[in-house]
């Protein structure tokens, strides 16, 4: 039986939470198409608890492929493993997260497997008449949504935008099959070598954050950024910025949100002195709740916001910060 597979990700042997978002997607498709949901995961010494967690959250079969050379993501060893599983199990569909891993591995594999691949999908469905996977994704900076399918080539592959769906719940007592495999011999061949990792010194990962505070050019000087940082700290939010701020060197590039930066989908986005240029909106308009503070009542950002304050940020922020400091509860 040709099934629906997700590519679960691990870090240092622990299953990453983004994998559970894929299970949510997979479960919906499995139910609609009457297929089974399976998960594949590549790594070294992957925690048994993590693998069981995948089962508890919906995978009926988990295949873990392990070898020392799979400890860190390297495209060649990982693609050898995925291609091997494609041959063994002939998946109908493979879903991966649109992370730096998924967006590298999936195209590398799709090319070799002669499969169709759709990037960064935000919606998935099964077409009633044909049973084909319908993949919907924003294109052209989020101005257009396109639905894409892959009529003949198999597997049908997609990368899914992280945070575009909640994590699948765990259900005690869910049964599933756990298969542990050694990696095929060719997986030891890589022309890329892992040499180390430097974690971000910055507070938290922008794309994982549930709340982000974003500064725009309205903040006026680099020194003023500390105002926004203070707000972010009080809210437990990550700090992001528009391109204007990055180009002026007030914050480093990993903070940039938008077309040529990161796409974020937090629960709460707060834009401060951000005008809401279309290229910026491309990276944040799918946030669950958007708040904007801008002195220009006609600023574009208000068109996508749920709540807005028209005013001078240098008046608003001190009061806001003061209130939060005094422990005004909002959580």
């Amino acid at each position: 039986m040709k099934n629906i597979w997700i590519l679960a990700e691990q870090d240092a042997g622990e299953v990453k939470a983004v994998s559970y978002e894929l299970l949510t997607r997979g479960l919906a498709l499995a139910e609609k198409s009457g297929r089974k949901l399976c998960a594949m995961i590549f790594g070294n010494n992957i925690s048994e608890d993590g693998l069981n967690e995948l089962i508890a959250r919906g995978a009926e079969r988990v295949v873990a492929v392990e070898a020392p050379e799979l400890e860190h993501f390297l495209v060649e060893p990982y693609s050898v493993c995925m291609l091997d599983l494609i041959k063994k199990y002939e998946p109908e569909i493979i879903l991966a997260a649109a992370t730096t891993t998924g967006r590298t591995l999936m195209p590398y594999v799709a090319m070799t497997a002669d499969a169709g691949l759709t990037a960064d999908c935000t919606e998935l469905d099964i077409e009633d008449e044909t049973g084909l996977l319908l993949q919907t994704r924003p294109a052209i900076g989020g101005n257009i949504m396109a639905t894409i399918k892959c009529p003949e080539h198999r597997p049908q592959m997609s990368t899914i935008r992280p945070k575009s769906t909640p994590e699948a719940d765990r259900q005690e007592g869910r049964a599933g099959e756990l298969i542990r495999l050694r990696a095929p011999a060719e997986a030891s061949k890589s022309r890329v070598y892992y040499e180390g990792f430097e974690p971000d010194t910055e507070e938290m990962n922008l794309q994982d954050a549930e709340r982000v505070v974003v500064v725009g050019r309205g903040i006026k000087t680099q020194a003023n950024i500390k105002l926004a940082r203070k707000l972010a700290d009080l809210l437990g939010a990550a700090l992001g910025a528009s391109r204007e701020v990055i180009d002026r060197g007030w914050l480093s590039y990993p903070h940039q949100i938008g077309l040529s930066g990161k796409t974020v989908t937090p629960k709460l986005y707060i834009g401060i002195g951000v005008s809401g240029a279309i290229q910026h909106l491309a990276g944040m308009q799918t946030s669950e709740c958007i708040i904007a503070i801008n002195k220009d009542p006609d600023a574009q950002i208000f068109h996508v916001a749920d709540f807005g304050i028209v005013g001078d940020l240098f008046e608003v922020l001190p009061i806001l910060i003061e209130k939060l400091k005094r422990g005004e509860k909002i959580c």
Binding site: T118, M145, H303, G308
Partner: peptide, 21 residues
């Protein structure tokens, strides 16, 4: 391998509550 079957404009249904300061 892939075919675009439909294109549409995303609907942004946000009702912004604006407050003056």
């Amino acid at each position: 391998p892939t075919r675009v079957v439909k294109i549409f404009r995303p609907e942004v249904v946000r009702n912004c509550e604006l407050m003056k300061a």
